[in-house]
Design a binder for these strands. Structure first.
Length: 294
DNA sequence: TTTATTTGACCCGT
DNA sequence: ACGGGTCAAATAAA
């Protein structure tokens, strides 16, 4: 490694349409707005949980409170999952196109035989049939193991964009990738540096930490109690720092080091994980965060 | 020695 | 031609 890595950015996937028109596209905007609000709500609830639970005595009441927090987050996660389904079906209706660029729509041509025409091609250009973007102060802590494979300076962006693919890409042919880009400015002075994370493709791997749960909301039903001790004990023992912990989960050893700014906002690191709820974010992971935040 | 990251080059879609 | 996603050799770290 020659230099510190700065996963970066600003908004990668802006709202697709102006809400001004009354064509069907405004529905997509509504979805985005609602999803954004739910994400905020999840974040706030998670933060509140991190504050409240440690303050309670370890008794039945605290368990009840923990369960209630979990239920609230679970509801939000389900709502988010449903909205994403709606959002994706909107994309699917969009004449075979999807947004992956702030300036234009990328077409998805049917070039299934193109590769045969040009066998010398070193690599295929990935075509993103599905992607989910979110903003988070903890871009690497999503419970998956990622391996960085590229970084680029993006036109008109202050910070370079980092490219990650699933660690099990080769072993298990998992096609999932993600890009991380730091936003130019924070939402507010009391908020940490935010990153836009865009996930492409579904995880098909089954290896360590890589569940194959997909976005099925039924997968989020594990209880706080039952899900925590079994898995997290083997993980939380690695470190006491949220970023070290994240590194151990991610397998991206460097990424955490460059985020000193975020490290000053542990509460956000520890709590603002709810944005991943719709991305196969299991409760044990939230639980781990909770402990760090405590 | 193995594994992960960096980074310039390559490739493709627009 | 340009912008951005990916590759892969070189390099660093464990």
């Amino acid at each position: 490694m020659k230099q510190r890595h700065h996963p970066n950015n600003s908004r990668v996937y802006p709202p697709r349409q102006s809400p001004a028109s009354d064509d069907p596209s405004h529905v997509v905007c509504d979805h985005r707005l609602v999803m954004k609000e739910i994400t905020k709500e999840q974040s706030l609830v998670t933060q509140l949980r991190a504050i409240v639970l440690p303050a309670l005595q370890a008794d039945e009441r605290s368990e009840l409170v923990a369960q209630m927090f979990h239920n609230i987050l679970d509801c939000s996660s389900k709502a988010m999952a449903k909205l994403q389904l709606l959002h994706q079906s909107d994309d699917a209706r969009d004449d075979g196109t999807h947004v992956d660029d702030k300036k234009r729509l990328r077409r998805i041509p049917d070039d299934s035989n193109k590769e045969d025409v040009k066998p010398h091609h070193k690599h295929k250009r990935r075509r993103f049939a599905d992607s989910v973007s979110l903003e988070t102060p903890v871009p690497h802590y999503d419970g998956r193991q990622w391996r960085k494979y590229g970084q680029k300076n993006i036109n008109k962006e202050k910070h370079p964009r980092s490219y990650y693919r699933c660690t099990y890409r080769h072993e298990q042919d998992c096609k999932a990738t993600k890009t991380v880009q730091q936003k130019d400015e924070s939402i507010g002075s009391d908020y940490p540096v935010m990153y836009t994370v865009v996930y492409h493709g579904q995880h098909t791997c089954k290896g360590n930490n890589c569940s194959d749960s997909g976005t099925d909301d039924s997968e989020t039903k594990t209880t706080l109690q039952s899900s925590s001790d079994s898995q997290q004990s083997s993980i939380s023992g690695y470190c006491s720092d949220p970023f070290d912990h994240q590194r151990s989960l991610d397998g991206n050893k460097l990424v955490g080091k460059s985020e000193d700014v975020i490290a000053e906002n542990n509460i956000y690191q520890a709590c603002d994980m709810s944005a991943f709820a719709s991305l196969e974010f299991d409760s044990w992971e939230l639980d781990v965060l909770l402990r760090f935040g405590a």
